[in-house]
């Protein structure tokens, strides 16, 4: 469960202060499917980064499964992140010198899971995402939709409880976009908490809960 209360985040650009998040309070239950929408610059990505422990708020409290993650050290936050949170980015962020399989394997490798265990987990995911025949391709040999599926595979390989996707279909054509959306929703159906940032009204409407942001505030 995610509980945010009175989060503040501001950026200094020259001598101007931008309030990217302004008094944001929000509770997301385990297993929810939430779409975050709003105009460009409204603070959606900033919110996602803080939810994903990639960034810290200036003020306010963030409880993740009843742990106050604002108080944790960077190393502890890294540990929590690797265990509980999976990310999907708009621009995939795959490592180009690694194959699809190795990209999916990467989080497990980084957190020291033994090779045998990794192989089993990755096999399972390749099967699930219908990427078995693409396993040994490098990212530049894959289509956009396939790349995003690999990125999703990488996000869920550690079996996180939360999946954060920041405009996952933003770079995709409508067919692959629909595929990716369906995949994310099926993961949510299996129990993962899904938070999606999207500009696509149709996708937003499919979510059980919609959040709207404007100038750093939830409306």
């Amino acid at each position: 469960m995610i509980e945010l209360s009175h989060l503040e985040k501001s950026f200094q650009i020259g001598d101007q202060t931008v309030h990217a998040l302004d008094d944001v309070s929000l509770t997301i239950e385990t297993g929810e499917y939430v779409a975050v929408m709003g105009p460009s610059g409204s603070g959606k990505s900033t919110l996602m980064n803080i939810l994903g422990l990639l960034d810290r708020a200036n003020a306010g409290q963030y409880l993740l499964d009843d742990i106050n993650v604002s108080d944790l050290t960077e190393a502890e936050r890294t540990h929590v992140r690797s265990q509980k949170i999976g990310f999907v980015f708009q621009s995939y962020h795959l490592v180009s010198r690694l194959t699809a399989r190795e990209n999916i394997e990467l989080p497990m490798m980084l957190s020291g899971v033994p090779a045998k265990q990794r192989a089993l987990a990755v096999d399972e995911i390749l099967e699930k995402l219908s990427l078995v025949d693409r396993a040994h391709h490098s990212p530049n040999q894959l289509s956009g939709g396939q790349r995003q599926r690999v990125a999703i595979g990488r996000a869920i390989v550690m079996k996180p409880s939360i999946l954060l996707a920041d405009e996952p279909t933003g770079n995709l054509d409508s067919t692959s976009g629909a595929e990716v959306t369906a995949l994310l929703e099926s993961l949510n159906a299996e129990g993962i908490t899904l938070v999606v940032v999207t500009h696509d009204q149709a996708m937003g409407d499919r979510a059980r809960r919609q959040l709207r942001m404007l100038d750093g505030r939830l409306t």
């Binding site: 990639l54 190393a75 540990h79 992140r81 690797s82 962020h93 990467l106 989080p107």
Partner: peptide
């Protein structure tokens, strides 16, 4: 730099 950010996002500690 981007890759370092990615590795950290994927659970790599500063030590790693």
């Amino acid at each position: 730099t981007k890759e370092i950010g990615l590795l950290k996002a994927l659970g790599a500690t500063s030590a790693t």
